[in-house]
Each structure stands twice: as C-alpha cells, then as structure tokens.
Design a protein around this nucleic acid. Structure first.
Lengths: 134, 134
DNA sequence: CATCAGGAGGCTATTATGGCTTTAGATTCG
DNA sequence: CGAATCTAAAGCCATAATAGCCTCCTGATG
C-alpha cells in the first residue's frame, strides 16, 4: 500500500482542472499548485495515457479532463499514477500458491484480502465529483 | 498523503500479533512475514512508543498488543509509523494564512479539506478488529 | 553471570523526487 | 504554403528520501 507524492499531485491537478473551462498547460498548473514542473509533467502524461485527461499540443494547448468528475475514482488515479493499484501487501503470495508456502503470511491472507477489499471499495467509491461538488 | 512500506509492515505485524497468545519477538515476526528484520524492528519500536504494542525484553520477550483490537485504528498506526498523519497536501498553506497567498492552491483549499476529512474518517473508523474478526 | 531480546545508531542500496535537454505534434502568422 | 512558436512527450542525470543491513548497548530472565 504505497502512496507517493505522485498521487498527491495528481489529485491536486484534477481538482484544479475540474473547475477550468479551457485546457491548462503544465507550467500553469505547476505554478498555481506549487508543484515541480518536470515532475508534474510526467504525472499528467500518466493521467493522459489512462484516459483521465486529454492532452492538447501546440499553442493554447494543455490538459483537460476527459471524463465526467463522477467517473474519476481515486483508485483509478492512484493506479495509473503509481503504476499499480495500492496493495496492502504487494509481496504476499497469491491466494492459489499460498497453501504451498509455510510462512504465516498464509494464515493472515484472508485478513489481508478483507482489508484490501475495504480499501479498494473506499477508493473506488470516492470520485472527483465527491470532492469538488458544492 | 504519503504511505510507505512502514505502514504496510506495521499492519501485517499487528494482524499476526492479534492472533498470538504470547509475545512474539521481532525475528519471528520478520521470518513469518518475510519482512527485513532490522527495518521491522524500528517499526515495532514506533508502535511500542505509541502505546499500540508493549515490548518485553529478555528471554521469552517480544511484542504483544497493548490495546484491544477495536481500539487500534489504521489512522493511529499510520500516524505513528510514518511520523505524521496522512495529509492530502502537506505543503498546502493553512486555512488562515491562505487568503494572503495568491496561488490557486487557495481556491481549491476547501476541496482539499473535504477530501482530507473523508480519508481521515475512513482510516479512523477502520480498526484492527474490523480486519481480524471472523 | 550468561543469555536472550529490545533500543539505538550508523552505513549502504534502492527508489522516489526533481532538473534539464531534446524531440515531435499542433497552432499561429507572414 | 512555410516558418516561427507553442506545448506535450520522452529521455537522461542529480539529489533526496526510503528501505534495508550491521554493530554495539541496555535491560530482563534464568
């Protein structure tokens, strides 16, 4: 369950973009949010690849939301920006190969699974709309 | 909102300890959970300082829960292990000094605050008991 | 007093964060 | 149409923070 600044910056950008009528370029976003420009650029690219943002090149270009705010979940954002979904125990054996191992990780696996489910559903249900709606 | 492996390892340890009748030493925990020993030791110390675990020195020593599982929230665990509570935007200006700044961070501050509240209450309500109960 | 396990610190490796430059696609203007 | 300009895309490199390793010290147990 690793969450880095990339997720933090991504959410901030999405909140600001949700109130923008036109595309905002990465430099403006960087300045307005006090986020390092080049790092933010990479994050915005990830969001664009994931279909959450749409990018426009050239003059008057920039980034704009490519989905409705209620269709952008925090789980989607974190998954694409972190490169993977937040997992409670990334190194844990999968459910099927677990029985072959002897470590106690196996005995707590059902609990991990349960915790993971709770976290996933919370992040899945929490959308940008929930945050920016008045 | 930064969450590192320390939180991950802490939660795993707590789940395993919740089913233990006697204190478990850090080496056993390390082996059972496949977590680096020395890193885990530091995490367990943080949990002990926070009053979540109780440590026992000497032979037959180790760590054991020092609270009821329903009194251990994920927010508590993360706060003590990460050194601070998970904050959505750590660098954001506080609410009172915000108006003096000109950046757009100010305009999205209410949304950040709202998001923070949702995350905090989720993590506060999610206790170890919710995870390990049958 | 010998042994066991936590407490504390320093040191290294890995990863995240941030800076910089070059390339490519799109727009504007002459 | 073509050149200049604008901005995203993509890469490489430096720094900072995290993750992990090792040793010595301290207190408890028998």
């Amino acid at each position: 369950m690793l969450i880095t600044r990339a997720s933090e910056y991504a959410i901030l950008s999405l909140i600001l973009l949700s109130s923008a009528k036109e595309p905002m370029d990465s430099e403006t976003l960087s300045r307005e949010l006090s986020i390092p420009k080049s790092f933010l650029a990479k994050i915005l690219q990830s969001l664009a690849k994931a279909g959450i943002l749409k990018s426009y090149k050239g003059a008057k270009g920039g980034f704009a939301l490519d989905k409705e705010t209620q269709d952008i979940s925090m789980l989607d954002v974190m998954s694409c920006v972190e490169g993977k979904a937040p997992a409670v125990f990334e190194c844990a054996p999968s459910e099927k190969n677990c029985p072959s191992e002897q470590a106690s990780v196996c005995s707590i696996w059902p609990f991990l699974h349960k915790l993971q489910g709770k976290i996933d559903s919370f992040l899945q249900d929490l959308t940008l709309a929930d945050i920016v709606e008045e």
